[in-house]
């Protein structure tokens, strides 16, 4: 199955999703197309594979229950990325609230996940980069991931995060500077 869609496929899939007779099979097709892209978007934000699997499932269940509100005004991928982003942020806020109750260092949650994750086999540079990204605020982290790893156009990030292109550029710039500082401090 193709993992990308062109404009006509997207329009066809949107039509099938909005028709009650075909929505179930179209939804299955949509999951097949987008599950991997969404997985990696969420995974880069949450680090842990298990957490990512939970949030990915919640993302698609939310998409299924809100299918009636999807009219095809936005691209399917943009719609799904928005849901995934909101679900990820909600998950992190819950985790942070739990951490606040038990630890004096709530920001250490993602660092701990990275150390403990058995589905990470990167080298030292990759580990350092992920640890540097984990120090960023959630939204800045999301912008950096979409731009740096996925090379996503600012216009699409703008639609997903509902933020202006100018603000995204600034956010990306500050995130890159903080990460550069993190690398610099580790070398000292």
């Amino acid at each position: 199955m193709s993992k990308t869609t062109n404009a006509s496929e997207e329009a066809q899939l949107t039509a099938l999703l909005t028709d009650p007779e075909t929505r179930r099979s179209a939804f299955t097709r949509m999951v097949g197309i987008y599950q991997e892209q969404l997985y990696w978007q969420i995974r880069k934000l949450l680090i842990s594979h298990d957490d990512t699997a939970d949030v990915l499932q919640n993302t698609f269940l939310k998409a299924w229950t809100n299918l009636d509100s999807f009219r095809g005004d936005a691209k399917i991928s943009t719609w799904l990325y928005s849901i995934a982003h909101n679900e990820s942020i909600t998950f992190l806020q819950k985790r942070q609230a739990e951490q606040d109750m038990t630890q004096s260092d709530p920001e250490g949650y993602l660092m701990d996940q990275l150390q403990a994750d058995k589905y990470f086999d990167g080298d030292e540079t990759q580990r350092t980069l992920l640890m540097a990204i984990a120090t960023l605020p959630a939204k800045q982290r999301q912008v950096f991931n979409m731009r740096y790893f996925d090379d996503m156009p600012y216009e699409q990030i703008s639609e997903i995060l509902n933020t202006s292109v100018g603000a995204l550029k600034a956010s990306y710039h500050f995130a890159a500077e903080k990460i550069a500082d993190y690398f610099h401090n580790r070398e000292l």
């Binding site: 995974r43 589905y119 990470f120 080298d123 540079t125 990759q126 980069l129 992920l130 990460i179």
Partner: peptide, 13 residues
């Protein structure tokens, strides 16, 4: 920016 890699080193089961 270029931090020496564009890969995360994460894998999936």
């Amino acid at each position: 920016p270029d931090f020496g890699t564009r890969e995360t080193g994460m894998k999936v089961p």
